[in-house]
Simulated scan of single mutants.
Amino acid sequence: MKILVYEHITSGALCTEPLPDHLVREGNAMLQALLNDLAGNQGVQPVILRDFRLDIPPHTHRCHYVRDLDDFRRRWLACLDYVDGVLPIAPETDGLLAEVQSWVLKTGKRLLGCRPEATAIAASKTRTAEYLAAAGLTTAPTVWLRDWQPDTFTAGALICKPDDGAGGTDVLYFENATALNTWKQQSPSETWEKQIVQPYIQGTAASLSLLCAEAEAHLLCGNHQQIQIENGAMRLTGITVNGMEYQRLDRKIFQGLADTIASVLPGLWGFVGVDLVLSPLPVVLEINPRLTTSYVGLREVYGVNPASWFMTLLHKGMEAVELPPQPNQKVTISVEEGLAIQATHC
């Protein structure tokens, strides 16, 4: 089976502009891990589009170098003709991921990822909160910046971020309502229509790695996220895959949470990430309807090829996927140091 692994940042779609180093590191790490894992499955031939400024990663059956946008369009269409399915990894921002998913479906190729209708919901933090809250999950109180007033929430720190987009992009931290109100008054009114405000929730930053399909979910592992606040901005500096401590909360709680999310958004398919805060019970923040950086550590955590679950899901369905027992390894990924990996025993 020929599979186009479409990693947007490294694909050549940005060939006319400078490549953002940190996004290239993350994109390359995910792409290389996935290519390695897919190539370990008999009969799978990974195909990629590649920015001409980057080297060809190993385990690539066919690579199409991209030098300009016309070249990108031609090679994208040529790849769609050549492959059997497409596994997209792209930001949700501005509807990009949903557009890629829709295009794959229109061409009649197999979409090896979430359905665009699920991605459209997950890409919006307010819509995600509405769907999950209606299903009984705890979510962060959320209001649009245009509607926010200094007395909207009780005293404490606040977060302001875009409603649309991927994960922790452009997340601003304010120590109190006065600081946020000052920033709001100095911001153009169009910003008010795109940003949301949430109280800063004290607790442990975490994420879940899931395998989803057919309104069901397998919990692969819970991850501990290292978040740094500096100069009024929040950023992810590291992830400990399988680093979530279950002593306080039973793993069944997180599997139940995963089951609810999959039932609320039945179009989730394949590898999916969920961001949350343990405060101390889980507060769900966002859903990432695609493979995330945590995937890079899954093979070492489990000691098996995680793409084998993916291929079983593809060919035989969710009921045929059998996970090994809960692993006793954890892997720390330093996002700011070239995605260096350090393995330790739990």
Rank of each mutant, 00 (worst) to 15 (best):
G136E: 03
F153G: 12
G167L: 11
A120Y: 05
G167M: 10
K2P: 06
W148E: 01
D51V: 08
K316P: 04
Y131L: 09
T60M: 06
Y6I: 08
G303D: 01
L35A: 06
P46W: 03
L96A: 04
C160R: 05
L265Y: 06
T312D: 08
I261C: 05
F254E: 04
P324E: 05
G243C: 00
K106Q: 15
L31Q: 06
V197Y: 06
L34W: 06
Q202D: 14
I159M: 09
T312L: 00
G27T: 13
A134R: 13
E193S: 11
G165T: 08
Y295I: 00
Y82H: 13
G238E: 02
R25C: 15
E7G: 01
A29W: 01
A129R: 02
A134M: 03
E193C: 12
I227M: 11
I3F: 08
Q326V: 13
R248F: 14
V272N: 14
Q198D: 00
R235T: 12
L268W: 09
T152Y: 13
H64P: 01
A233Y: 11
A98H: 03
F52C: 14
A262T: 00
Q329G: 07
K106A: 14
P289N: 02
R73Q: 07
M318S: 07
R62V: 05
I341A: 10
A320Y: 08
K330H: 12
T154P: 11
G222R: 07
L172N: 13
T10Y: 07
T191N: 14
P57K: 02
E322N: 14
A179F: 03
T293W: 08
L132S: 04
Q255Y: 09
L180R: 00
Q255A: 07
H345Y: 12
L34I: 12
D163W: 05
T293Y: 07
Y82D: 15
R75W: 09
P199K: 00
V241K: 04
G238M: 04
D37V: 06
A29N: 09
K161I: 08
E26T: 04
A123L: 07
L220Y: 02
K316H: 15
F174A: 01
G108L: 06
K106W: 06
L23C: 06
R50M: 11
W76V: 11
A13L: 13
E322W: 10
K2N: 09
A213I: 12
G165D: 11
T119A: 12
G317T: 11
G43W: 00
E336G: 07
A129F: 03
A307P: 10
E92P: 02
